[in-house]
Design a binder for these strands. Structure first.
Length: 432
RNA sequence: GUCCGGAUAGUGUAGCGGCCUAUCAUGAGGGCCUGUCGAGCCCCCGACCCGGGUUCAAAUCCCGGUCCGGACGCCA
């Protein structure tokens, strides 16, 4: 019962050797005199071949009674065979059913019949058995690996900050209220405040990969109520510096995935184009001017509409930055320019289809920060724990947050963000 | 939240007033078959979202509800 090999580790050269594989009964093809059992494991498929004339009758009986998608373990001898899919097949000496699958199945796993996304999400465990769906999450893993490696080389320390917080909001988005013993608390909208506090702590460069929660009732293909954010914060760097880190990271992630994930990219039919750096930088003023070419007149100080975002994306055609945003539509911690305070040192990093990241050089002066909080209509009292870190030696710093799901979906050309989350949380879906 | 589209066997679909005892594929059950690899062939099983209405007649038209998809809005 103990696995000796994954399907991908067996080769025709192992001819005559005995192996044990564990997996799911992907398909059973009974041709009468010869029966094939296709076993699927995480890495691929193995063909198990039973010849009626020579095989143990009990084994044949077991195989003929296996329902599709049951969990099986097969011990057998590798037989080099040109007619078999990978140049070899397994002639079994022992087959056990470890977990019987009911039938009919709630969805097809072989790729013969499509299923709606809604159906697939209801039985996500089965959906992920499909190589296509699994490939998405294998690539997600490669992306996260690549990011951690990149950050480590750049001198960033990985941190984890609380997801249960007392502050109602940093502004903008609505939060999910929860009960924390006898008090009201919230699920964190981002690690923003805590990663900044780490700058005062002297950690110099930090990053976090973790969940963020937004209680907005959005209903689109690019929004989630629970998402994963990659956040960085770095001292003694400005907005320009962290933009360079960001574009380098994105390029690195693409090239790492192209290199280590070719098998999964092939499964998904994706040809990765590695973005060139530096990414184009356009100012907010230039962005609204481009948008006006499409007939969408955005008043200075308003956020970009979805339509304009698409139009600008199509015009530029590759990853780009929008810089120098109006101070009033960016959060209080974005640093206004000294000589032109209605504009701030904030940036958004865009994929032609959508925003992937936003960041800024931060306000590090206590007095200014306190004023900015008030100007944005928030009460500084709720920010005491945060403001305190600015009173005893806060270095200048900058950072950004990047959405993992959006990075993944734009990389793979996937339309709906729910496809790239194991168990998506949206306006209506809370289970599974 | 607004607008548009949709809901038919386990899954994916066709049908859009009578030709419906509802199409096709896949699947489930049974049978034949020694090289399948989306196996093939034969038999068989399984469905019109819920409620109301129009009509001689409703899967089909109308109204309400629920759910799903898309666009927009909302969204450091």
């Amino acid at each position: 019962m103990k696995r000796t090999h994954y399907s991908s580790q067996i080769t025709p050269e192992m001819n005559g050797g005995s192996v044990t594989v564990c997996g799911w009964a992907h398909e059973i093809r009974d041709l009468g005199g010869i029966t094939f059992l296709i076993v699927r494991d995480r890495e691929g498929l193995v063909q198990v071949t039973l010849f009626k004339k020579t095989i143990d009758k009990n084994l044949l009986e077991i195989v003929r009674n296996i329902s599709r998608e049951s969990v099986v373990t097969v011990t057998g001898n590798v037989k080099k065979e040109a007619k078999a899919p990978n140049g070899y097949e397994l002639v079994p000496t022992d087959i056990k059913v470890l977990g019987k699958a009911e039938s009919p199945l709630p969805m097809d796993t072989t790729g013969k019949v499509d299923a709606d996304l809604d159906t697939r999400l209801d039985v996500r465990f089965m959906d992920i058995r499909r190589p296509h769906t699994q490939a998405i999450f294998r690539i997600r893993h490669l992306i996260l690996n690549s990011i951690r490696d990149f950050m480590d080389r750049e001198g960033f320390i990985e941190i984890t900050t609380p997801k249960i917080v007392a502050t109602a909001t940093e502004g903008g988005t609505a939060l999910f209220p929860i009960t924390y013993f006898e008090r009201e608390a919230f699920l964190n909208q981002s690690p923003q405040l805590f990663k900044q506090i780490m700058m005062s702590a002297g950690l110099d460069r930090v990053f976090e990969i973790g969940p963020i929660f937004r209680a907005e009732e959005h209903d689109t293909r690019k929004h989630l109520n629970e998402a994963t954010s990659i956040d960085i914060e770095a001292s003694f760097l400005d907005n320009q510096d962290v933009m360079v880190i960001l574009e380098n990271l994105v390029q690195r992630v693409y090239s790492d995935v192209a290199e280590t994930g070719s098998k999964y990219l092939r499964t998904l039919g994706v040809e990765l184009e590695i973005p060139g750096i530096p990414f184009k930088r356009i100012t907010y003023d230039e962005a609204i001017s481009i948008a006006s070419d499409s007939g969408d007149n955005i008043e200075w100080g308003d956020d970009l509409s979805t339509e304009s975002e698409h139009y600008i994306g199509k015009t530029i055609g590759e990853h780009y930055f929008i810089i120098d945003w109006p101070t009033k539509i960016k959060p209080f911690y974005a640093l206004p320019y000294e000589n032109r305070s209605q504009v701030c040192r904030a940036f958004d990093m865009m994929h032609p289809r959508m925003e992937l990241s936003s960041g800024a050089q931060r306000v590090h002066s206590y007095d200014l920060l306190r004023r900015r909080i008030t100007e944005q209509g928030l009460n500084p009292d709720g920010f005491d724990f945060y403001l305190k870190a600015f009173r005893y030696g806060m270095p200048p710093h900058a950072g950004w947050g990047l959405g993992v799901e959006r990075l993944l979906m734009t990389m793979l050309g996937i339309e709906n963000i729910r496809e790239v989350v194991l168990f998506p949380r949206d306006r209506r879906r809370l289970s599974p």
